[in-house]
Design a protein around this nucleic acid. Structure first.
Lengths: 100, 100
DNA sequence: ACAAACTGGTTTATATTATAAACCTTTCAA
DNA sequence: TTGAAAGGTTTATAATATAAACCAGTTTGT
């Protein structure tokens, strides 16, 4: 019996398939650099949530996070890595198997 | 101080932002009718997981689920509703705010 | 006829995630 | 010098996804 009922959907990287992390990556992919406050405002997220999600992206090496100062104020700057860029592109490819 | 740092991302309907439910909706949107076994095979999911997710889609009225028989075997048939179709389209629109 | 295995599912338990709430440290303004 | 704000982090809770266990009926083999 020919089995053509085969899964035709690609895995969606769970690290990217998350509203907030996807938004962050979406921003970083075109900006190449953005700080914590900017990301918080552009995504509309709470600081706590953003902090957690940045950690996850950072641990996966999808982004780099530099903690420094702007004058006397702490300033956390994020940028996407090559790994992150590649993962994002693969996510987009995978998405297409769902949304045509 | 002008605040142009405004959230530019639309909400992603959490009911659709789920790998399996999205796959199911993706199938139903072009097929208009599919049974449980077909969906399980096409999505590569386990029966338990599929059962749970179909319930959620059904409770949200995104799909209709008819339990009947094909000969002596139980057969559960699903189709998308207008509500579901609309939600799916809105999900696609929202996604575009993330993926350009 | 009876047991074992298979179909087509559902229910329940568990692990993971996302999110918000509470908290911390430093700076600034009164 | 005290209180509020900025810039985060940590912790607790709620929601989700997933798998494992289960169930009723059917078919197969002996």
């Amino acid at each position: 019996m020919p089995k053509d009922n085969v899964n035709s959907f690609r895995e969606l990287d769970p690290l990217l398939h998350s509203q907030l992390r996807l938004a962050v990556m979406s921003l970083l992919i075109s900006l190449e650099e953005a700080d914590f406050v900017y990301l918080r405002e552009k995504t509309g997220s709470t600081a706590g949530n953003l902090s957690v999600q940045l950690d996850k992206l950072s641990q996966a090496k999808y982004i780099e996070v530099d903690k420094g100062y702007s004058g006397k104020k702490p300033r956390t700057v994020c940028r996407i890595t090559d790994t992150g860029r590649k993962a994002f592109e693969e996510y987009l490819e995978a998405l297409k198997t769902y949304i045509g």
